[in-house]
């Protein structure tokens, strides 16, 4: 039986965080983003109307826009995740903890690094995919507490390394060429200086000899 696409709702107040989440979803096969929300109220409303298979909720999520400068208002992610999970027993709700600071910088700016979802277990973090959750369609949903981690991706990294080497080789070639040209230029000048010196010395010698001859 052909498996249907896993329909995903994203929710975070931070556009960069939404971009990271979008990338996580897009790197998987058979997943599609059905909506994005920038606050909790909208996330709840979209979950009710669209009934996605999975909701990815950032734990820093204000309930409504307008009171963002108050820290307490920003921590509504858990409340929204609980409400969506309780209202939609078949939906998998993933509450994300670590979508901030260095992680965003790492996963969005460092080439060859992928963001991935994982759930904490003892000292380790167990990676999982949205397709894993999609395969449990029809079974009761769950509220999953997860982190977003970054991991070096093997193939893009190799490509980057190769291109880096080519660029480095090119730059070294240019520098070496310039050094050679400079050396040749200096050698040419040096030759003229030597010739001038020899000529001057010869003139001096000739002058000295002619003085002695006519004494």
């Amino acid at each position: 039986m052909k498996r249907q696409n896993v329909r995903v709702l994203l929710a975070s107040e931070n556009p960069e965080a939404r971009s990271v989440l979008r990338r996580i979803v897009e790197t998987e096969d058979k997943t599609v983003i059905v909506a994005e929300a920038e606050n909790g109220t909208r996330a709840l409303s979209l979950a009710r109307s669209l009934r996605p298979d999975v909701a990815l909720i950032d734990s820093y999520l204000p309930s409504i826009v307008g009171i963002d400068n108050i820290p307490l208002s920003r921590v509504g992610g858990l409340d929204i995740a609980q409400s969506i999970s309780e209202e939609n027993p078949n939906m998998h709700v993933v509450l994300l903890n670590s979508l901030k600071g260095n992680l965003l910088a790492d996963s969005t700016r460092r080439p060859g690094h992928n963001a991935l979802l994982c759930r904490e277990s003892n000292e380790t973090c167990i990676p999982f995919t949205l397709s894993d959750l999609g395969e449990r369609a029809g079974l009761p949903g769950s509220l999953i507490f997860a982190n977003v981690e970054t991991q070096a991706s093997a193939i893009p990294q190799q490509k980057t390394r190769l291109s880096d080497k080519v660029i480095l080789a090119g730059v070294l070639g240019v520098v070496a060429g310039w050094l050679m040209i400079l050396t040749m230029f200096l050698a040419t000048i040096g030759l003229y200086v030597v010739l001038a010196g020899v000529t001057t010395a010869l003139f001096g010698l000739v002058g000295k000899l002619s003085k002695r001859a006519f004494k």
Binding site: G76, D79, Q82, S83, E87
Partner: peptide, 17 residues
């Protein structure tokens, strides 16, 4: 969290304080 009781057809909700 604080639990808000059910009101007018709405389910009870938990609010992080």
């Amino acid at each position: 969290q604080m639990t808000l009781p059910k009101t007018g057809g709405q389910a009870s909700r938990r609010i992080t304080v």
